[in-house]
Design a protein around this nucleic acid. Structure first.
Lengths: 181, 181
DNA sequence: CAAATCATGTAATGTGTTACATGATTCG
DNA sequence: CGAATCATGTAACACATTACATGATTTG
């Protein structure tokens, strides 16, 4: 259900097509999940059915018509209500931890190599988030407070991955003290 | 598909029924996701079809028969192969960040209250993880290295939530410098 | 000349959650 | 006496991912 409100959020800045929204999702990084067609186009139909957005169709030659969606007052109200609703804990699924849980069957070398590959992945991802924060493509920066909020959102991801990187490095370091089983 | 390997992992310790596995998932905390019937019972059928587990049925009076699953050599090999497979980045979906992204429409009081509620949730969760680590119910502790790995898995969750708690506290603190829009 | 951009969508499949269903026994 | 435990499973729904489909235009 979050995707509907993320869409309403983007539309609260300015009207957009499904295609525009797709790119906003992609560029955001933060809202990576659900940058895909299926969910966006379906969500837009639903939002329209509930009168949270209106829709203007622009015919084009040689191309599919552009469907420009605009948020309604009802849509703005729904967005605000949702923003004020009870916050939930992040949902985290780390399959690497499941691998680790049964990694005692590995040799020290195998285990360290597995951990090293994870460290590398995390590190790469961290670099990407840091770059993304510099470029700062999506954020609107209309007010100082809004700019601050978007900066903190980027920091959330960065510090999460920094934390993960520290953790895996500590794991690798301390593993040297344990012989294989 | 992770659930299949998590089940194989538990079965690599000892044979178990679907019901046993369900409780192992619940108690683990770490593998919270997919402690539900549907996935466990379905996965067990699949594992059996692929000969990764064998199945012994114990008839009981007045109760459904117990189906005791035992991992096969093929199952152990599949588990090891998976444990050595390319580690993936954690999947994280934090809806609170989406709320924050469009929270500039709120008053300072509303925004701080929203953040305070998130802080409280995170804090509660952190306390639960810390308790769980002390109780240490699921881990087998058969070798020092295995014990260490399970301890690091618990630490991963704890440090992630500590990081989140620090982040939200910093956010609340620094927000005091920004007037509402 | 191949790939990306624009612009819509559908279909199939995978994964996860909640609720429903049964029914005796034991515990607080 | 109500709730939890034991033990299996099904059904409905929600949410996500990947691939397919079309087809002109622009860019490298």
């Amino acid at each position: 259900m979050t995707i509907k409100y993320a869409i309403l959020g983007f539309l609260s800045w300015q009207p957009a097509t499904g295609y525009d929204l797709k790119k906003l999702f992609e560029d955001s990084g933060t809202f990576h999940w659900s940058g895909n067609n299926n969910q966006i186009y379906k969500a837009l139909v639903e939002l329209h059915n509930n009168a949270l957005v209106t829709l203007e169709v622009q015919q084009q030659e040689d191309r599919p018509p552009r469907k420009i969606y605009t948020i309604t007052e009802k849509g703005r109200a729904a967005l605000k209500r949702w923003v004020l609703s009870e916050p939930e804990l992040p949902q985290i699924r780390n399959t690497f931890l499941v691998q680790l849980a049964w990694a005692d069957q590995l040799t020290s070398a195998e285990l360290d190599e597995l951990a090293a590959r994870y460290e590398e992945e995390v590190h790469t991802q961290l670099r990407m988030f840091r770059l993304q924060k510099q470029r700062n493509k999506v954020s609107p920066q209309r007010t100082p407070r809004e700019e601050f909020l978007w900066s903190m959102i980027a920091d959330n991801w960065i510090s999460l991955y920094e934390n993960e990187l520290n953790w895996i490095r500590r794991l690798r370091h301390e593993l040297t003290a344990y012989p294989e089983s």
